[in-house]
Amino acid sequence: MPMNVGGVLGGLSPLKPTATPVKSGEAAGADFGAALKQAVGALGQLGQQADASTMKLAAGQPIDIHEVMLNTEQASLGFSMALQVRNKLVDAYQEIMRMSV
């Protein structure tokens, strides 16, 4: 992943060792950006699902409690996953910023 991150940051990929022969920095960056966008979209969808089922439960509509809990748990797991990815991104950025030139 750090390699792809380099692609996103722009022009930094040559500084990273290329373990696997992948596409050029430009193409990899576009791919990673798309993947990120998709992941964030999926996360938003999970959140909306959790919201909708919680609202249903609160409004007294027939919905199983475990359904609500499952949806909220999914949203929570997805969010912590996204948080970790974001932390990794920030870590990589700071690592690069700390580099003495």
Binding site: H66, L70, E73, L77, S80, M81, Q84, V85, N87, K88, D91
Partner: peptide, 21 residues
């Protein structure tokens, strides 16, 4: 089944913890 669910959840949590330094 709730126990199974908790296990699945814990497994997911553990794998997310992998990213925690």
């Amino acid at each position: 089944n709730v126990t199974v669910l908790n296990s699945i959840k814990q497994m997911a949590q553990r794998s997310i913890d992998l990213g925690r330094a």
